[in-house]
Amino acid sequence: MLLENLKIDPTDLPQLEARDFTPLEKDYLYFRITAWSLFYLMLSGVGAMLSLFGQVLFTFWLYPLLSLWVLMFIFERIGFKYRGYCIRSLDVSFRRGWLFHRLTTVPLNRVQHCEFNQGPLGRLFDLATVKVYTAGGNSSDLDIRGLRKEDAIKVRDHIMELSSRHA
C-alpha cells in the first residue's frame, strides 16, 4: 500500500473550507422561486377547479397555499446562501441546505461520466446543470445546478479532462 509508511499529520492535509466554495449565480434563486411558484400555481389550479365545480370552499385551500408560498420565499432566500460548489485539482464538491445541510465530494479519479444539461426553464434563465456520476449509486451522484451555460460547459470539460487523466 502506498500510504503505509507515511506519517500524516491531519493538520497538513488539504482542508475543505466553507470559504473555498463558489456561490451560484443569483439567477438560480429566481429560477427556483419561479419553479416553485409554477408548482403552487398548478396546485391552486386544481383547487380552483374543485371550488368552481365542486363543494370545496376557496378559503379551504387558498390560505394554506399562500402561506406555504410565502414560507418558500423565505426558505429559498436563506437557503441560497448555503449553496455552492468547489472544484479542486483532485475533487469536486457541492453543498446545499440551511436546516438540513449536505455536503458531497466526488474524487475525480472516481468519476464515471459527466454530463451537461439544460431544461426549458433553464434556457429561459440561461442556467444549466452539470451532473457528475460515480459508481456510488443514485443518492451519491453530484449535481451542480445553477451555472451559466458557458461556465457549465467549461466545468464539465474540466472535470472530464481531469478525471480521464486519473483513470
Binding site: L99, F100, H101, L103, T104, T105, T134, G136, G137, S140
Partner: peptide
C-alpha cells in the same frame, strides 16, 4: 470508497454534530 457526504440537520448543528456517509459501489 467512491465518494463521501456529510449531512447536518439543524438539531445536529445546534449540538455541533454531523452525519457521515460513505458511498461505495455496493451501497451506502
Amino acid at each position: 470508497l467512491q465518494n463521501l457526504s456529510l449531512n447536518q440537520s439543524f438539531l445536529q448543528a445546534w449540538r455541533g454534530l454531523k452525519s457521515f456517509q460513505f458511498h461505495t459501489a455496493a451501497g451506502t
